[in-house]
Structures are given as structure tokens and as C-alpha cells.
Design a protein around this nucleic acid. Structure first.
Lengths: 347, 347
DNA sequence: GAATAAATTTGAACCGGTTTAAATTCAATA
DNA sequence: TATTGAATTTAAACCGGTTCAAATTTATTC
């Protein structure tokens, strides 16, 4: 069934059928109804590929993240999808798997497919992001989900610094004085920003900054576990609170502490980052800085759609910072063991 | 840049450029090189939309699941993507959000987009799956990820019965005699199959089946928590082991038990289902029946690609059952508290 | 009823590729 | 050198829509 078949059946031209499909005001009510009836009867659905070719617009967006099976990204994808849905867009999701070559190949393929725009969580550092620069040169609509040094483009990300400031302040307000920070992987700019927020909070509460309280972590449970052991093995003042780069690190660290007889939160308060779901499932539920991933996805998509509308115009890049939420649970010591419900995330 | 532009620059016809792009053996080596140079020089990339229209093939697959942010589905998506990647396909992921209307709309939109095939986790029961039947009538290539009563189609799913049999047998081998089963939501056929495997194991070990040991659960932490309280509140023999519909239910149940002074695994063994990631993060790590979601995704995609190749031929439906893996951790009582590494999932 | 204006419909070109029969070029053979 | 056959290239049609100037139909006015 093509538009031609319908036209023949209805005894009109293809142009008229096209008009009917697009609710053009120039087609008469009578023809509209007659043609529509035939369309329904034959269950005809226009070929979006042909439409895309004619309109130079596919109605498809591309989302490139490191790994959708990371809850942070899948929640984000949910937000993207929500806005896509409202605008009759579809979404192609691809994973870079932290492989530079895959990032390049994927972006190229999506460009060939003529997606209307891209949302990219770019690999940072290590290589020169030529393809991203090319996108910019070609005025191809895209939004970044992480900063890329030297590139001024639309960007949506969480406000790491303020999130970290909040978390650290919370610990300080609970009376903790010796707060350690377990950093993320070397490549993460976010880790640096969180360190900044941490320092800011210390300064604000007149607590001296101690270099020894900064430990190299990572992003996996192991990294936290090892960092925990390291902290315990030192001869200096053991921290009475730890702020971790993410939840996995926090959980690993807690395990190390528990194994060595340190109680959480009685002896040591712990706060994580992300709130990707595990946090509330733990026996002693994890206090953490929640990233509203879905919200990030929504905002990024809205920004992208705007950019698509103004494709040729030169609008200066927008940078949107999304606020985190401190999810106060048990490991920080502020809450007693609570009911099941209170600990389950809402979103 | 279009194929025509390149043709002009190279002083050949569009057909020749097309031949070059597709490595047609009829174009001479000399022309191939000359045209290729110009293509590279101008960084020309063929428009896949136009190609799709001409070839009647988009190179895009659709994946429809309930919710990608469910780790089970996002892992599955990863497997799908892997095979897509190998075959230069892209993947549109959509979520039904357990909403029948959305399922209908999504399938229709993806058909309009002329995706080459669909992988569908269909909503079960409740409604008549007309669109799925339509797909079948139209010989549209698709693979299901869950059974649909009355529909014979390509299907890939986990072998619930054998997984459940394994888990129950494991508990029996550990000497447990009073094993409860907390079921899933009413609509899940999987829950029924797991019950079957449970019964089979009991029978095999000559342990009498007790109706009172079957409890209605669900799929959320709360459901498990409530089921746990219910079990404890009864006046009959309290179970010494519980097999749960999924990990969330298991975790909820464990929480209820712990709160009432029952120790896991000392007093009660617990086994979950899915192994979606939380299991290994718990203080007492959860023994669970792992669904190899990625593998399911891979197999489903391979099956779909085959179906696409044989689009017009009538190949009888394939039904592939994927084996589960029993992840023996701590809550079943078979393992002592182990090292961190042993508990972290591999895939 | 003719003239004119307004409403509706349509033919043909276009989007950017692929395909194939026919035309052209090239090389080998007589 | 002319002939023949193979290798290469090309023109034109096609995929299934949209668009818009021009043609046609309908309605309005005198």
C-alpha cells in the first residue's frame, strides 16, 4: 500500500492524499472524509522513510552513552524517551563502551542515518574529539552530557560542585570533623568538581583541609573496598566520615570498614553519589547524592529540540546545571533504621 | 553533498558512484580509485534514508520492552546491540511502561518507520494482542521475549522451570525441608513456570508439597517484605528456606525476617531470581538464579536476523530457552562470607 | 447567464539513493 | 583494419512520499 494506491482507490491525485494525511486546510471536508475512509479501510500507514527523504527530517534522535546498562544512563534514556514521545520522535540508543573508535564509528553512522540530532555523553580526555568539533562545524544539532575541554556547546549535566558541597556540609552539620573524600577515576572531570565542592564546604565551616584525607578511588566496588583498607591502615587520624565518588565505591568502602570492626554510621558516616537504586536496598541504607538522571535526559532533549528548530540560526550554547538531591538515609547517621517505604526511591 | 555532486566532480554518472560505494565488481579499478579519492576529499557520506527507500530496508531494528531502566532489559538491550553492531544495524529502543495503548502505538510507529524487524517483550494477559497477530499476518519479522497464549511465533526466553528446579534442589541438598515459594505478580506466566520447577524439585527429593508454603508476592521490595511478615505471622511451621520470584522480593523478605530476629542464612535460607546487580552488593550477598539477559538479547537478535533473511519463506517458529545460572552466594547458607571479588558479577 | 473570485485539485519536479537494459569503450582476434 | 566479445559506463526508471505553480471546479456577484 502506497500513497499512489490510495489515490487510485479514491480517484484523486497523490497530492490530495498527501494533503489529507497532513491535514492540509486546502482539501475539502468531503474529500478528506472519503479518502480517510479508504485509508482506514486498507489500514494504510505512510512510509516514514519516504517522508523523511522528502522532508529532510527523520524524526529520529540519537543517544550515545557509555553503557545503557548503567542505571544512570538508562534512567537518562527514559527521560529522553519521554520528551521524544511527546514529539513523535524515536530514539536510537548506542553505547560507546568507553571505546574511542566506537564513539567515532557510531557518530558517523548516526549522521549517515540523518538522525535529526544527537545527545552525547562524550569520552573525555585521552583523544582529540574531532567528530564533535565536526558536528559543530557542520551545525549538526547536538547536546553534550559532559564537558569537553575546548568545546563550547549545548550542555546538560548535574551540578557536582553543589551536590558535593551539600553532602559535605551535611556531614559537618552532624558534627563530623575528619571527613575523607574518595575520588573517582582519573579521567572524570566530575571528580575534580566534587572535590571543589568538598573543599568549599570545609572552608565554610572553618574545618582545615587535610591533603591526607583525599584518597584515590575509582568507580567500582573494589576501588572503594581498597580505599577503605588503605584508610584504615594509615597511622594518622582515622576519618569519622567519608564522602565517596559514587555508590559502588561507598558500598565497597563500608564493607572494608565493617570487616575491620568499624561501625557505620556509629563510628563513621558514609555518603555516596548517584543513587542508582542499590542505595535503598542495603541493610543499612546508603545516604547519597542523587543525580536526577531522568530530568537530565528530559532537559537535554528539550534543549536539543530547540537547537533543531533553530538549526541555521546561530544561538549561543546553553549550559544547564541540574540540581542534585541529598537522599538522607542511614549511613550518614542522621536517621535511625526506618521503615521500608521511606527508603525506596520515588522516581 | 549528494551522490550527484560527487558524480559531477568525478566526471562520471551517479550510477558509477553508486557502484563505487557498493564495491560493485563492474567498476574499473581506475575509476574506483579516482571516485574514492573525491569521496574522501569531500568527506561524503551516503544518505542512508535515501538508500533505505531504494533498497526497502532501513538497517534499523526495534526493541520494545517494558522499561529499559530495569537492569534485566538494559542488559538485554546490550546483547541486542552487540549483534546489531556486528551487522551494521542500529537499534530503536522503546518502552511500553506496561501500558497497553503505548505498546500499540509504538508498534505502529515502528512499522511506519519501516524498521526491518522487532524484538518485543509483549504485555501478557489482559488484552487481545491484535497488533502482534497483525505482524504475523503481514509476515513482519519479529521475535517475542515472552509467551503469548495462542500465538506461535519466534521466541527467546529463560528456562524458568529448570532455573527454579535448580534453586529448589540446591536448598533441598542443603538439608532444607520446609521451603516456601513467594510468587510473582498475577500476570506473570514466568511465576507459574517457576512454581512448576519448584514442585518438580520437591517431588524429586520426596518432600511433600504443602499449599501453605506458596505465598502471593509480586515484584517489588515491598511485596517481599509483606510476604515475609505474613509468613512469620502464621501459626504453622515456619519455613527454613524461601525461594522468591525475584531479587527485590527476596531482599524485602530478608528485611522482614531480620527485623523479627530471624537470621539469614542461619535460620532461613533465601534464594532470589534474576541477579540484576544488587544481589552481590548486599552485606549478606544474595544467592540467586541469574538470567543471562545479554545472552537472551543476542540470541533473539540472531533469530530475528535469520527471520529477516527468510522474510517471504515460511519457516516454522523457533523457540529458544536459555539456561539460567545459579549464583551461589551467602543467603542460601552454602557459602561463608567471602571475598569482595567473588561476589561481583562477571558479565 | 456571464464574469469574477475563491476553493480545490493536480501534474510534475524533487528528495538521494539503486538498478538494469542499453550504449559505449576497450582489447583481442582474424 | 575490421570484427567480435568482454569490460565498463550510463540514462532512465524507480522507491514513496511532499510541494507548489498552474489548472480546474465551485461559489458569488451583477
Amino acid at each position: 500500500m502506497t500513497i499512489g494506491d490510495i489515490a487510485k482507490l479514491a480517484g484523486v491525485s497523490r497530492a490530495t492524499v498527501s494533503g489529507v494525511l497532513n491535514n492540509s486546510p486546502t482539501v475539502s471536508k468531503k474529500t478528506h472524509e472519503r479518502v480517510m475512509a479508504i485509508i482506514k479501510e486498507h489500514n494504510y500507514r505512510p512510509n516514514e522513510v519516504a517522508r523523511a527523504l522528502a522532508l529532510n527530517k527523520t524524526g529520529i534522535l540519537g543517544l550515545l552513552v557509555k553503557d545503557v546498562s548503567n542505571p544512570l544512563y538508562s534512567k537518562l534514556a527514559l527521560g529522553v524517551e519521554e520528551i521524544c514521545d511527546e514529539n513523535e520522535y524515536n530514539l536510537i540508543i548506542s553505547n560507546s563502551h568507553v571505546d574511542w573508535e566506537r564513539q567515532v564509528k557510531t557518530i558517523n553512522l548516526l549522521k549517515r542515518r540523518r538522525v535529526d540530532g544527537l545527545i552525547i555523553f562524550p569520552l573525555q580526555k585521552g583523544h582529540d574529539p574531532v567528530q564533535i568539533k565536526d558536528l559543530q562545524k557542520d551545525k549538526f544539532p547536538f547536546v553534550l552530557l559532559a564537558e569537553l575541554p575546548g568545546i563550547e556547546a549545548d550542555l546538560v549535566r548535574v551540578d557536582d560542585e553543589s551536590g558535593s558541597y551539600q553532602a559535605t556540609s551535611h556531614l559537618l552539620k552532624l558534627g563530623r570533623k575528619h571527613i575523607a573524600y574518595i575520588s573517582g577515576p582519573d579521567l572524570a572531570l566530575a571528580s575534580e568538581r566534587r572535590l571543589k565542592g568538598y573543599k568549599k564546604a570545609l572552608a565554610h565551616y572553618d574545618v582545615p583541609f587535610d591533603e591526607k584525607m583525599i584518597r584515590k578511588g575509582g568507580w567500582r566496588l573494589d576501588d572503594g573496598y581498597n580505599a577503605g583498607l588503605e584508610l584504615l591502615g594509615c597511622d594518622f587520624q582515622c576519618p569519622d566520615a567519608v564522602f565517596c565518588y559514587n555508590d559502588s565505591v561507598a558500598i565497597g568502602l563500608i564493607r572494608a570498614f565493617m570487616e575491620r570492626g568499624k561501625r557505620v554510621p556509629e563510628d563513621v558516616s558514609v555518603i555516596g553519589f548517584d543513587d542508582t537504586g542499590v542505595a535503598s536496598y542495603l541493610e543499612t541504607s546508603l545516604t547519597t547524592v542523587a543525580q536526577p538522571a531522568k530530568e537530565i535526559g528530559r532537559k537535554a532533549t528539550e534543549l536539543l529540540l530547540k537547537r533543531i528548530k533553530n538549526r541555521n540560526k546561530t544561538v549561543k550554547p546553553h549550559k544547564i546545571l541540574i540540581n542534585t538531591h541529598l537522599m538522607v538515609r542511614e549511613t550518614c547517621g542522621a536517621n535511625l533504621k526506618g521503615s521500608v517505604k521511606a527508603q525506596v526511591p520515588v522516581d
